[in-house]
């Protein structure tokens, strides 16, 4: 259950380019060279415990977990 994959997203307004996400999960986050803003590369999927750590450690509180989409009613 805890190995469920979740998707992560970056709020560009809040990103300070601190690089914690790129340090922790270099396969998922990349800091843009010019703007120094983090963005998600690839599918942006991580096991939930690892996603929680990145969210916890982001100094700008810019990373969030995107809950799996529910079918619209």
């Amino acid at each position: 259950m805890s190995d469920d994959l979740v998707r992560v997203a970056v709020d560009e307004e809040r990103c300070i380019g601190g690089g914690q996400c790129e340090m922790l999960e270099p396969e998922v986050f990349l800091l843009d060279e010019d703007e120094v803003i983090s963005s998600v590369i690839g599918s942006g999927e991580l096991p939930r415990p690892r996603a929680d750590v990145v969210v916890h450690r982001c100094p700008g509180a810019a990373i969030s977990i995107v809950e799996p989409q529910r079918p619209s009613e």
Partner: peptide
């Protein structure tokens, strides 16, 4: 102001 100034120099200090 902090975000603007920080991004000005942060590029040199990223892990990569």
């Amino acid at each position: 102001d902090h975000t603007r100034l920080r991004r000005m120099v942060a590029g040199a200090f990223t892990p990569k």
